[in-house]
Design a protein around this nucleic acid. Structure first.
Length: 351
DNA sequence: GATATTTGACCTTC
DNA sequence: GAAGGTCAAATATC
């Protein structure tokens, strides 16, 4: 069992690391340029990586001996499946539908959720950023309190055919009607998505990808220069900049006693620099600075924290110890292959 | 006729 | 009780 968890943790960290790399690039991009579509593309990649990581976690819960049951198995899960909601089932004329609905609610609660803001080009009109490679079916629209525009609700067209529970909400920004805030809930399990990787990019996106590659190359070059500039820094100068702005991170900072000398040790720092930008810090450190383009969070991660608190601890622990902005501007350091045993080295690493 | 959208009503959550 | 979320009948479109 332990080996299974080890493997899952490795997979998780692999995915999060990918997202982290993208986050680093985006952060750098934000520092260097004004918001652009390239950032949009990067954020989507980040989301994709995080999404995969969450799927791995979900899989570990449904197939392993972890306590939470798979949502579709009908196995009891907490109090809900025992006695239902405060409303009694007898009051419902159609108990079966009601039960299905409750199961749906349970599924929804467990679905990973994240939000991204998409700017709609003028040629797309105001139909919304619906062309994300998936087939959606609108099932509702609601006026939201305080919002100028109604919120639209979409779910996967193949929900009933292929039991795909992906859904999204589209809300036009009050400030900028060309910006749509899309909240995705769950991932596609239908065959249209296969592995939830976005479909081949349109020519426009391919061009963006090409530009992005060029920008990344520039960033790598710049990164090398910056690395040289910082190699001479004394550890003592780094330490005062260590901060833990994320509550999530700070909790774990309490759980782990981190000798600052170890944290600031250049070799350790470099060897684990690939952990900079862990999703635990993404919200507070990397994206909150942008008012026009935010990747908010995986709200589903809150659910995961209960059953996978150890993983979350590890992740946030990484975030805590690697969150060491130098001069308020972090920069990626040479990528390092992930140590397969990394999640379990972390304790010894910091002691 | 099949499929998608609209929209009022209902349900859930806080 | 209010607000958000979803359902499902009515309607529109192809």
């Amino acid at each position: 069992m332990e080996s299974t968890r080890t493997w899952e943790h490795q997979m998780l960290i692999n995915e999060l690391t990918q997202g982290m790399e993208k986050a680093k690039q985006l952060r750098f991009h934000l520092c260097m340029t004004s918001p652009s579509k390239a950032q949009d593309l990067l954020l989507q990649k980040i989301l994709s990586s995080y999404e995969k990581a969450l799927l791995i976690l979900k899989g570990s819960r449904s197939t392993g001996q972890v306590q939470l049951a798979a949502p579709t198995s009908g196995a009891p899960e907490s109090s809900i499946s025992v006695d239902g909601s405060p409303r009694s089932d007898e009051l419902n004329k159609n108990s079966r539908e009601h039960q299905e609905h409750r199961e749906t609610s349970k599924k929804r609660k467990m679905l990973p959720t994240w939000t991204e803001q998409v700017s709609v080009a003028s040629e797309n009109g105001f139909e919304g950023p619906t062309d994300d490679g998936y087939s959606w079916r609108k099932y509702g629209q609601k006026d939201i309190l305080g919002a100028k525009y109604p919120r639209s609700y979409y779910r996967c067209t193949y929900r009933h055919v292929q039991n795909c529970w992906a859904a999204k909400q589209v809300q036009r920004s009050d400030d900028d009607p060309t910006i749509f805030e899309i909240t995705y809930k769950g991932t596609h399990t239908c065959t249209q998505s296969n592995n939830a990787v976005p479909p081949p990019a349109s020519p426009e996106k391919q061009e963006l990808n090409y530009k992005l590659q060029q920008q990344n190359q520039m960033l790598f070059d710049l990164r090398a220069k910056l690395k040289v500039d910082t190699e001479g820094l004394e550890n003592k100068e780094i330490q005062p900049h260590l901060s833990f702005p994320s509550t999530f991170a700070s909790v774990n900072f309490e759980n782990h006693i981190f000798p600052t000398s170890a944290v600031a040790d250049d070799s350790h720092f470099g060897a684990n620099s690939h952990l900079i930008g862990s999703p635990a810090l993404s919200e507070s450190n990397y994206f909150s600075a942008s008012s026009t383009y935010q990747m908010k969070r995986f709200r589903g991660a809150h659910n995961l924290q209960h059953s996978e608190s150890d993983i979350a601890e590890i992740i946030s622990g990484h975030a805590s110890t690697t969150n060491s902005p130098i001069g308020g501007m972090e920069f990626p350091i040479d990528p390092v292959e992930l140590d397969p045993n990394f999640p379990f080295n972390i304790q010894g690493f910091f002691t």
